[in-house]
Design a protein around this nucleic acid. Structure first.
Length: 275
DNA sequence: ATTCTGACCTGATTGC
DNA sequence: TGCAATCAGGTCAGAA
């Protein structure tokens, strides 16, 4: 799915279309994605002015006077800006119909989510889903991220890759960018997180920021399902250092990329340069 | 308390 | 060609 660069690419792609828009209708074609789609959504936001689109980790937040519409793309979700004539395809599960077009959610695997957080319940950051989320990697200083990573991993036995994927210390990395960042930092993905020196934590944080920014410049990665909000694919995957490159040459040493499985997910790394 | 596994889904690809 | 097994960008709930 969409990791942070893909979600941010979608946010940036949609934002220009949303200025001074009001909601004409809300269409849910399935009762639930990962969780039920709130049935009272139409009542809550029909006719309401959309005040902004922001992002927290991999969640998109559409802000309205009454609260926030929270959207997650799961593994296979995409969100596109389409005009009202656009035919509905299979797996087009949700539409936010606005004055001049539609924000349409397409999600074959339905691991995504459409939720609501009422303003009366406090800031959206208070939503239960956000309680355990770590720092934003692109909006936090390298020094603070490194400090959080180092201090947050002391005494921890799990692998550094598992720590990145968990997003409890720093959000945004999924399977692709966790692998890529670890390669860039030359850290073995199975390293015990609690044993990383402060210098290595610093190096990893720098690598993570550089990797995410590079992916963002390329419009994210498009593997199977992901497309940008304008329907155009990202192309970071062609520049990947190790992800999905098992058996191919490492791009920085003479080694061969290897694939291992950690927490039931593929990890790609170079034994020659990651220790 | 921390860590790991199973589950949720569909569809594309791989291998016999 | 057909069919079964495997794999895929996430992450929560519950078990070890």
């Amino acid at each position: 799915m969409p990791e942070l660069p893909e979600v941010e690419t979608v946010r940036r792609g949609l934002a220009p279309h949303l200025a001074a828009c009001k909601v004409r209708a809300v269409v849910a074609r399935v009762p639930a994605l990962r969780w039920p789609i709130p049935s009272e959504l139409a009542t809550l936001i029909s006719g309401a002015a959309l005040q902004g689109l922001s992002r927290r980790g991999k969640y998109l937040l559409f802000e309205f006077p009454a609260g926030w519409l929270i959207v997650h793309l799961g593994m296979s979700g995409s969100l596109r800006w389409v005009d009202c004539e656009e035919p509905v395809r299979k797996h087009d599960h949700f539409d936010l119909v606005l004055d001049h077009g539609i924000v349409r959610l397409h999600d074959p695997r339905r691991f995504g989510a459409v939720l609501w957080h009422a303003r009366a319940a406090g800031p959206v950051a208070h939503h239960a889903l956000f309680a355990g989320l770590g720092l934003e990697p692109l909006e936090t200083s390298t020094a603070l991220l490194a400090k959080r990573l180092f201090e947050g991993t002391r005494g921890r036995h799990r692998s550094i890759k598992a720590v990145l994927l968990a997003g409890e210390l720093i959000v945004g990395a999924g399977n692709i960018y966790a692998c890529e960042s670890l390669h860039r930092a030359r850290i073995h993905p199975a390293s015990r997180a609690g044993r990383l020196s402060s210098a290595r934590c610093q190096r990893l944080v720098v690598a993570l920021q550089e990797t995410l920014e590079e992916a963002l410049r390329r419009g994210g990665s498009s593997l199977r399902d992901f497309v940008g909000s304008d329907g155009v694919n990202g192309h970071y995957q062609h520049e990947a250092l190790v992800y999905d490159r098992e058996g191919l040459a490492c791009r920085r040493c003479a080694g061969t990329v290897r694939r291992i499985v950690q927490q039931q997910r593929s990890t790609y790394y170079c034994p020659g340069c990651q220790h």
